[in-house]
Design a protein around this nucleic acid. Structure first.
Length: 426
RNA sequence: GGAGGGGUGGCAGAGUCCGGUUGAAUGCACCAGUCUUGAAAACUGGCAGGCCGCAAGGUCUCGUGGGUUCGAAUCCCACCCCCUCCGCCA
């Protein structure tokens, strides 16, 4: 959520910057400002009336104690009460309208964010590792996984419909060992605290991190009790600190969590077809940071490196791109995507999206800390995947497929997987 | 699911029966100062958040929402959450 005070102060700058992310902001900001002005003027009127009422009520108390007659003051206050009720309703209404408008405006891109309309303008920041060339005699992950019996897509769709995967045998174990590896890496070497959160979250959480109110159709909801299946661990984990006032020494907070993620992928049905690339349910290890505003961009760099080190340790070729203004997510001010190379697919797959939200989420969830001077300031929040499991899985089995049909397990993963290879059946 | 108890400031904990100047006693923690070579102790002062305002100040908030009343932390209703016991269960 943007700061209404700032919108009041520099509406034109805000409009311009929202423009760069393809948001038609002029009307939105103007109606917001109109609403804000109206709200404040009614509120001021309401408050002065309240002051009057408080004073008179006090007077009634005193005069009753003194045994004096109060009928006249009482009827005056009663009359104030009627006017007050009407004003309160007006304030509430304006307040509501304003809040909804604010919640529907995305974050401002960072100053240095490359300007562009869509993903075609995303600059590549770096590349790492050897890019194994695609060739016709290489299988893609679906072919490999089905041939080796690692994944049973048919069983999954029988159980839950399209967009789900069922891992089996060594295929399931491979995913489990990856999860274990990822969490250990972040907790043992990178200073994150492991969290295992609820996978179900309430509406407040979803508003706090920015999924709601705008993207409800993308979420799996549990209608009868207004709950949602978390689309990412970002939601429950960031909300751990919702409505808190932290002390400055507690920062930075670094959490990592493995959870399944549930997404309806409304509108993208049929585009991904078979495979692990886009699913309704997938596992992910998430990294979440809550930091001092002065440090958030340094923390974004290190968070991105925390994710990159996973790919490097597994020896997977990847590139880091920076999202241009038009491709930024709703709540993000700056985002790096990590794309791992999948030689069988012959494409780069987004396995991690690392973002600095600055105070946008913190404002929505009222997440603050007390600075040295004793002032309460909004913290900055960040998160990134470290990483999404299915696409990592794809890159892994496509990169390490052997000529004999088996799969080599990268060294770092071997202790977790308990073997050096997945053998092809003879 | 049944029966009880409870949600008040960073924490603990009064106040709620008998509504009135109580945004809230007291203690602890924390911050500043006095004293001290330094520290501790003692003493003095400060110490919740939102909104409006340049400020002075005003206003709102005692789980949430509604109601009663001239006036609600205090009375009434609904809901949410937590705890204890019983039942059921991974």
């Amino acid at each position: 959520m943007l700061d209404i005070k700032r919108i009041r102060q520099e509406p034109e700058i805000i409009k311009e910057r929202l423009q760069t992310r393809n948001v038609e902001a002029n009307e939105l900001i103007d109606s917001l400002l109109g609403c804000d002005e109206k709200r404040r003027s009614i509120e001021t009127e309401k408050q002065s009336l309240q002051g009057e009422r408080n004073a008179k009520s006090k007077e009634i108390g005193q005069r009753k104690k003194a045994g004096e007659d109060t009928t006249e003051v009482e009827s005056a206050v009663r009359e104030i009460g009627v006017r007050l009720k009407k004003l309160s309703e007006e304030v509430d209404e304006a307040d509501d309208t304003q809040k909804n408008l604010l919640l529907s405006i995305p974050n401002l891109p960072h100053d240095k964010c490359p300007i562009g309309a869509d993903e075609n303008s995303n600059p590549v920041i770096k590349e790492w590792g050897n890019k194994i060339p695609h060739s016709e005699d290489k299988e893609n992950h679906v072919q490999i996984a089905e041939r080796l019996g690692l994944i049973d897509f048919d069983a999954a769709s029988k159980i839950a419909g399209s967009g789900f995967a069922l891992f089996r045998g060594e295929g399931a174990k491979l995913q489990r060992s990856l999860i274990q590896f990822l969490l250990d890496k972040q907790t043992n070497e990178r200073g994150y605290t492991e969290i295992s959160p609820p996978y179900v979250v309430d509406r407040n959480c979803m508003v706090g991190t920015g999924q709601l109110p705008k993207f409800e159709e993308d979420m799996y909801g549990i209608e009868e009790n207004q709950m949602f299946l978390a689309p990412t661990a970002e939601v429950p984990v960031t909300n751990i600190e919702r409505e808190k006032i932290l002390s400055e020494e507690e920062l930075p907070i670094k959490y990592t969590a493995h959870t399944p993620c549930f997404r309806r992928e409304a509108g993208s049905a049929g585009t991904g077809n078979r495979g692990l690339i886009r699913m309704h349910q997938f596992d992910k290890v998430e990294l979440v940071k809550i930091v001092h505003p002065d440090q958030s961009y340094d923390e974004l760099e290190s968070l991105t490196e925390d994710a990159e080190c996973i790919l490097e340790t597994l020896g997977l070729h990847y590139r880091r791109i920076e999202l241009c203004t038009g491709d930024l997510g709703f709540s993000a001010a700056k985002t790096y995507d990590l794309e791992v190379w999948a030689p069988g697919q012959n494409e780069y797959l987004e396995v991690s999206s690392c973002s600095n939200f600055e105070d946008y989420q913190a404002r929505r969830m009222r997440l603050r800390f007390k600075d040295e001077a004793g002032k309460n300031l909004f913290a900055h929040t960040l998160n990134g995947s470290g990483t999404a499991l299915p696409r990592l899985y794809v890159a892994l089995i496509e990169t390490y497929q052997r000529d004999d049909g088996g799969i080599d397990i990268p060294e770092a993963l071997q202790p977790y997987f308990g073997n050096t290879i997945i053998q092809a059946p003879k």
